Simulated assay, not measured.
Amino acid sequence: MSDEEMSMSALPLAIALTACVAFAAASPTAAQSYPTKPIRIVVPYAPSGGTDVIARLLAKKLSETFGQAVVVDNRSGAGGIVGTELVTHAPADGYTLLLTSSAHTIVPAMGTRTPYDPVKDFTPISLLTAQPYLMVVHSSVAASTVEEFIALAKSRNGQINYGSGGIGTAPHLAGELLQSIASVKLVHVPYKGGGPALVGVVTGEVEMLFSSLPTTLPQAQAGKVKILGISSLKRSAAAPSVPTLAEAGVPGFEVINWYGVLAPAKTTERAVTKLHDTIVRVLHAPDIAARLAADGTDVVGDSPAQFREYLEKEITKWRQVVRTTGVTAQETR
């Protein structure tokens, strides 16, 4: 065989080898290219709320890091169901995300029918933050500790009322959980938002409330309410002298206002990994961590697997509370 014939016969092999080398060289770049277009973060609530604030804070930092636009899309309606369902129908490519709150696990536990499964129809990215509630009472209430309040509630069974920002909110369920664990009977008074509920306990319209740290601490410092405990399992750096309800005689009590990021089910592993790693770095950036800490908010930044497990545990917990107390979305008993 001539040199020319050998060269001609080797040509297809050379082309194939060149293609393989080119593909191998391109693959790592392709795997690292996400994102290549704008990302949308769906917030299932109206602008200016806590979820929206966290979403915009995160979106700004992600946009700076990725070099791509990250847009917050508020899709409120039906207590968060409208925006949440929207995300389940989006492509599983990492370009549509859901930034949701503790309501994601409370709503289905309350018996509300949703067109999606809160766990199976999503790919968890990370639990972002956790903020506990303060258990406070009006200054005239004859209790300065959780134990004293429980004793008072038992002596006045069914006569002490507590407020919340509405039926099915975390503060509402916190009151139900307290009743379940401590074996007391309280009367729930729902308000149209956490702000009006705080006004209610400050004026004495209601006697007890689970309320957020940033808005409640100033009222306590002014002597308008008394802080009895905090709803996390460990004390908060923002209020280190306040005991947890668990250590104050209500074992296992934990109610957290959390925010987390989810993607549609079966979102690509490449996108999930890139999103998770970047989000965790953003959350631990000094300026972001300091801003959150000032509000009594703890940075979590757990793994996708840990977040999935947390969602499952929260749903189980709230379903048990609902079964025990008989409360529903209409609060009929």
Rank of each mutant, 00 (worst) to 15 (best):
D298Y: 11
R308G: 04
G301I: 07
V272K: 02
D298Q: 07
V255W: 04
W318M: 06
R281C: 01
V272T: 12
Q219S: 11
V321S: 06
T216P: 04
L213D: 00
A220D: 10
A289Y: 01
P304K: 01
S232K: 05
A263I: 04
V300D: 04
F210L: 13
K266E: 15
S241Q: 15
T267L: 01
G296H: 06
L292H: 08
R308I: 00
K317H: 07
R319I: 01
A238P: 05
S241C: 00
T244V: 05
A293K: 01
Q306G: 13
D277Y: 07
S232Y: 15
A246S: 15
D287W: 13
W318I: 05
V206G: 06
V255R: 04
A305G: 02
T324L: 09
S241P: 06
K224T: 12
G249A: 05
I288T: 07
L311D: 09
V300P: 01
G252Q: 12
P251I: 11
L245N: 02
Y259E: 11
D302Y: 05
G301M: 06
N257T: 15
A238I: 04
P243N: 04
F210R: 00
R323P: 03
P218F: 09
P304E: 00
V261P: 14
L311K: 01
E205D: 14
A271I: 09
E247V: 08
